[in-house]
Design a protein around this nucleic acid. Structure first.
Length: 665
DNA sequence: TAATCCCGCCACCTT
DNA sequence: AAGGTGGCGGGATTA
């Protein structure tokens, strides 16, 4: 926080001092932090020789010089936005800075001519180093309310590289949910808050794929037939897998490759993976093996990925000695001893505190949740899509490209806050049939936010609030009153996102998972029906709206809400008076309030603990001392239902909530 | 010579 | 059509 403040001050200072700096945004301009514009103008022998145009002359090289450039390059609104977020900051990677400085000092000592041939070391331009610089721009554990947007253009200019290179980095980071794409040219930085859960999920997925066995087989084969690349890349031992996976060419994506690569490490006993083994496995999955060039290409990509992972401190380069000599390999040095998983996939979460202070105690709840965690999410998204009726344009088509990525959105809840879930209250049983938390993530993902963007945060919060507050009241329950609504899901808008996710799902890794998920889905539906019968008062209860972190994750827009026909709102209970209900600022509304237009809303809110000793199977409505239950609309039930989408104008009342930030109401 | 991987072309996708 | 993405592999650099 302090650092951010500091940065903000710097930014401000620079901003007010740079009125003269009127620069044109230059594509590929390399006057980044590392360059010294003054000394090397057009020739700039250092840095990637991208096609660049002129660089403004005479700007003294200061740590913030390029900040000025970026500021002026940015459009006003971007500028404002970024100002708030303190995105622009100089690279602070000491090691790199030193390194680079040395380089440039050397340059200083030479004439430009001399140095012209002497191109900068390749290392200076390596993806790994670039990635380090990239990572240095953002905090590992950002404050969740502080949503940092990454502009690819800006960061590329910042780092003095072509955007193409940034894609390489971002794609891998995205595969681990460190970032997510929110819009064209725009990513959102999440940091490592969820890295552990992400890895855990990947671990489980890797187990499902039997990557461990595959690796063993390949290694075994290598021992027998000296040439690892020759003997059937279409190995027969994996038939069940291939059958199961319905291999699709989509596997080529760097993101998916990255995830799979990580899986290999996680399931490996030695935590060591050689590139050729990895490449082999990945090729096998795409069924186009036995092709030397394919192999080569695969390995190349793996190098790219490995570089990023190395920069992340997740793996390191090592060498393994085999009969045939030394062989390069990578060893996992990141968090995650996720072993102890049982066969059914429910793993004991053995995570330590190495993923951040929030991840204190997770305990059994997490286990309970975990078993489905790596199974459900993807399908949840898909299912929702299938079920969803609303179809308003989904503004930001945040791509939820990776099944795993979608899945991982679920990972945030408990661990980040470390409070066990109440197992026995009504909502628990309602929302988490089978003891599995499923609803909130879906809700926030599909309803209030962009799927891949803020979902993790909002998801997080809903669960947290629900489970952690000692006298944990139901602070916000929204319902549709529509019996047909997906339970306990909210009807999200159809979005290309889901289509993509679905496509990816079907395309390979998660097919089996999908099937399992669907089965669970049915199971849940029937459970839901039972609950609905027993508790008509809660019929139609769809979701729990996240209350905390609202400022960070929720992007509530009236039109969006309207488009999905959000029918109700739940007010905070007294006990929660100091917590935000729904925070965040509406686009274009910076007044500090959130407007929710409500129509025909079933709602319910309470001020008493909802945790009871009931079993989830016997949910008790009376355990929720709702302060009020009813319908916001004058004509009760007149327009409840998913089939009753309303325009914002026709929506009923408008509630204005005081803006509340993270902790302050 | 093998290992690495920069670099940017270019096809495909989005806007 | 223009711009955004990212697969891909030639060939240069390093080990």
């Amino acid at each position: 926080l302090d650092l951010n403040c500091f940065r903000a001050v710097i930014f401000y200072t620079e901003n007010i001092c740079s009125e003269r700096t009127i620069l044109t945004p230059l594509k590929g301009d390399v006057s980044g932090f590392l360059a010294r514009p003054k000394a090397f103008t057009p020739e700039r022998v250092h840095i990637t020789p991208v096609k660049q145009t002129d660089r403004p002359q005479g700007d003294p090289w200061t740590p913030t010089a390029n900040l000025k450039m970026l500021i002026s390059a940015a459009s006003p609104d971007i500028r404002d936005r970024e100002m708030k977020k303190s995105l622009f900051r100089p690279i602070e990677n000491e090691k790199d800075a030193t390194f680079d400085t040395c380089q440039f000092d050397n340059i200083d000592d030479c004439t430009a001519d001399e140095f012209e041939k002497q191109r900068p070391s390749r290392k200076l331009k390596s993806l790994g180093l670039l990635c380090q610089k990239f990572l240095a721009l953002y905090p590992d554990y950002p404050i969740s309310t502080e949503k940092t947007t990454i502009s690819l253009d800006e960061v590329a200019a910042n780092l003095g590289v072509e955007r193409r290179r940034i894609y390489d980095i971002v794609n891998v980071l995205e595969s681990l949910l460190l970032v997510s794409r929110v819009a064209k040219n725009q990513y959102c930085w999440h940091g490592r808050h969820k890295l552990s859960q992400t890895l855990e999920t990947l671990h489980n997925m890797g187990k499902r794929q039997r990557y461990g066995e595959q690796m063993a087989q390949i290694q075994e084969k290598e021992l027998k037939s000296r040439d690892p690349r020759k003997d059937g890349c279409l190995s027969e031992p994996h038939e069940e897998l291939t059958d199961d996976l319905e291999l699709d060419r989509k596997d080529k994506s760097l993101r998916i490759m990255s995830q799979k690569f990580v899986m290999l490490f996680l399931v490996s006993k030695t935590k060591i993976v050689t590139l050729d083994v990895a490449a082999k496995i990945l090729i096998e999955e795409s069924q186009d093996a036995s092709d030397q060039s394919k192999f080569k290409t695969k390995v190349r990509r793996l190098y790219d990925i490995a570089n990023v992972l190395t920069s992340l401190g997740l793996i390191k380069k090592i060498h393994v000695t085999e009969e045939r000599g030394r062989k390069p390999a990578f060893k996992w040095i990141g968090p995650g001893d996720f072993r102890s998983s049982s066969d059914n996939g429910s793993a004991v979460f053995e995570e330590r505190l190495d993923t951040g202070p929030q991840l204190a105690s997770c305990g059994k709840q997490k286990m309970a949740r975990h078993s489905s965690f790596n199974v459900i999410p993807t399908t949840t998204v898909i299912q929702r899509r299938v079920n969803s009726a609303p179809s308003s344009p989904h503004q930001a088509k945040g791509r939820c490209e990776l099944p795993a990525v979608s899945a991982l959105n679920y990972s945030t809840a408990v661990p980040s806050f470390g409070h066990p879930l109440p197992k026995t209250d009504l909502l628990y049983s309602a929302l988490y049939p089978n003891g599995v938390m499923r609803c909130p993530p879906t809700v926030s993902t599909g309803l209030l936010t962009q799927p891949t963007d803020s979902a993790p945060f909002s998801t997080q919060s809903s669960l947290v609030y629900f489970s952690s507050l000692p006298p944990s009241p139901i602070f916000m329950v929204c319902g549709k009153g529509a019996p047909q609504s997906a339970y306990p899901r909210v009807e999200g808008p159809r979005s290309p996102t889901y289509t993509e996710a679905e496509a990816h799902l079907k395309s390979g890794v998660l097919k089996r998972i999908l099937i399992e998920e669907q089965e669970q889905e049915k199971e849940q539906t029937s459970k839901k029906q039972k609950i609905d019968k027993a508790h008509p008062g809660l019929n139609g209860l769809n979701f729990l709206v996240p209350a905390s972190h609202a400022g960070s994750g929720l992007a509530l827009s009236p039109s969006r809400l309207a488009s999905v026909a959000v029918p109700c709102v739940v007010l905070p209970s007294t006990a929660l008076s100091s917590f935000p209900v729904i925070g965040g600022t509406l686009p274009g509304n910076d007044t500090g309030s959130v407007n929710l237009k409500i129509s025909s809303a079933h709602f319910l809110f309470g001020a008493q603990p909802v945790v009871s000793s009931r079993s989830p199977d016997r949910p008790a409505c009376q355990d929720i001392p709702a302060a009020y239950t009813g319908n916001l609309q004058p004509e009760p039930d007149s327009s409840c239902g998913a089939d009753n989408p309303k325009s914002p104008e026709s929506m009923g009342r408008s509630f204005v909530f005081p803006r509340m930030h993270h902790e302050v109401s």
